[in-house]
Amino acid sequence: MKQSVLIQENKRLKLKFGFLKKDIVFTVSLILAVTSCLIYPPKLEYINFQVLFILFSLMLTIKAFEELRFLDKFAIAIINKCNNSRSVSAILILLCFFSSMFVTNDVALLTFVPLTLVVCKKTQMPMMETIIFQTIAANIGSSLTPMGNPQNLFIYSHYGIKPVPFFSSVLFMAALGISSLYFLIKRMKNRELKVVLTPVPLNDWKKPVIWGLVLAIIIASIFGVVSYQVAFVVTLITVIILHVKLLIKVDYLLLLTFICFFIFIGNISSSSTLQAFANTSMKDTTSVYFSSIFLSQFISNVPASILLAEFTTDWKPLLLGVNIGGLGTIVASLASVISYKLFIQANPTESKKYLIKFSIYNFSFLAFLTLIQYFILKIF
């Protein structure tokens, strides 16, 4: 009887705290925030509410598009017209690159990697390379816009960057990345192939149009055309009217992760020792650039950007560093973890092979883009 009670209690604890194991980045951020609060008193001013409100608005809107399967419909319509394996792979990779600019790299991969796995199952065509290239494409493509990934949104807001300087800073890197991917796509094996996927019905076009307008308002708030408070209110009202259940489908752990990192970094930045160390190790463009790339490999690029932003006013090498730093290790960008999990769920015996190939391609891109962009930074 006593043993049965203990087992039940253990199950309850697992259910209650299971999410901590599931989202390791949030768990780490929570531990860091709580620990730092024991040393330094937290302040409300540490939290960047503009980033949180814009991110929440984006998450709601993108979740709405996910529910409507708008991207799926568009992708399936294109893939059904392809007649060879290389064109199918090219479309799936390019869709990740371009869609990630607007719906974030995470959502691009959550949408198109499952579609790639369906194509793989229907055609018996190996798609491991395609999924790895999709991951690289999403990470590079998302770097091109402020709303493409969370670190860009944070840096854009934190430093108050204007659109022209932002785009001019990341354009060359993104162009170089997609050009390299195009070269690799051209080298992929090719065979005749006709894919027939069931079209996704979209009977009501009003909702996609409405959500498109909401997304346009959110983007306008990112660029300072309208206030982020207005964009948030418009998004919230639209959610309540059209699909109130979206409010329980948002990834709140991501928002809490940001809050925890804001508190942790705000607290530790009060340390005179850390400030002295940061001022010594991040004294120029080169050190900021390489520090952001290096740190991203271990703690991922989102927390790296929040941490390093406290110790430098030089936003350009930081922006480039954390975006290039999303390549490399599997944890450098959390989007990479998403595609890996989706792949091994469908192919559990190919985990090791995937990680080896993933590492070879990602570290090659990391080294290539790091060196080229470094010379560009030094010249300009």
Score class of each variant (00 low, 15 high):
N105D: 07
P114S: 07
P126V: 08
L117E: 13
E129C: 01
T111Q: 09
E129H: 05
A137W: 00
K122W: 08
V107M: 08
M128E: 07
A138L: 09
D106T: 07
A138V: 10
S143E: 02
N139H: 05
T116N: 08
N105S: 13
K121P: 01
T104Y: 02
M125I: 06
T135E: 11
M127H: 12
I132A: 14
V119S: 01
Q134S: 11
V119A: 02
A108P: 05
A137I: 04
T104E: 10
C120H: 06
A108H: 11
E129Y: 15
L110V: 06
Q134K: 11
S143C: 07
K121F: 01
T111G: 02
T145H: 05
A138G: 15
V119D: 03
A108D: 15
F112Q: 08
I140T: 03
K122P: 00
T116S: 11
A138H: 03
I140A: 10
F133G: 04
V107T: 14
I136K: 12
G141F: 08
P114T: 03
T135P: 07
L115Q: 09
T145A: 10
F133K: 06
I140D: 07
V107R: 11
M125C: 09
M125K: 10
F133V: 10
L115T: 15
C120Y: 00
L110T: 04
Q134F: 04
S143R: 05
Q134V: 15
I131F: 09
C120Q: 13
V119K: 04
S143I: 02
M127I: 08
V119G: 08
A108V: 12
G141A: 15
T123R: 06
N105F: 12
T104L: 06
I132E: 12
